[in-house]
Amino acid sequence: MMRYVVLILLLLALAVPAAAQEEFADDLFEDYVETGGSDLVPDPLYRFNYAVYTFNDKLYFWVMKPVSKGYARVLPVGVRTGIHNMFDNFLFPVRFVNSVFQGKFKGAGSELACFVINTTSGGLGATRPAQREFGLKNSREDLGQTLGSYSIKEGCYLVLPLLGPSSLRDLLGTVGDSFISPGNYLTYITPREASIGLMVLDAVNTTSLSRLGDYETLKQAAVDPYVAIKDGYIQLRRKRVQN
């Protein structure tokens, strides 16, 4: 009798883990909240957004991609990185002011140090001795994140022509930030064409450096690219607001 009991126990001990293996994972994604609940960013302007999304998509494949590819063939990656760094350097006021707005004084100080060092001994910011030699870090803050840190929600999802995914809150942030972006004041000292030219250069240059290929991969891997981009944008921004 005892032997049978032991045998049955043995069999059970062997069988239970095997059975548990298959349905094991029911609670694996318990902490992945379905964003359909209160967390969802509404998309009341879906039809408009989808149209702009389609427009941006065509603009990328028909204009930005071929232009950036040609541009990349002419300029070596080192030069393009330098140009990118310079544009980035002059966005210093946005990052600095928003660091202060969020009470991140250490980040603001480090941002100021980066700007001073890179502008003076980094060739107007083309190279980044502050990050390379001194290990200083940029703080990627903007007004959208500042508003987010004040517990202001996204409002609704927006797709902007040329600029891509955004939200009501982040659009407000972009407009606010533009008042302290040096690029915005170029029009007072140079002809309008020159500042538009600079904006185009920045866009083409950035695309040539990082986005070529990434956008295609994203679209290829997605089941629904519009939703994939929307969710990716919201997740990214929420993460940045937290940090």
Binding site: Y32, E34, V223, V227, K230, Q235
Partner: peptide, 10 residues
């Protein structure tokens, strides 16, 4: 950006 969450939303 969590890949799983992204597909989940899709």
């Amino acid at each position: 950006i969590s890949m799983v969450s992204n597909y989940r939303e899709q």
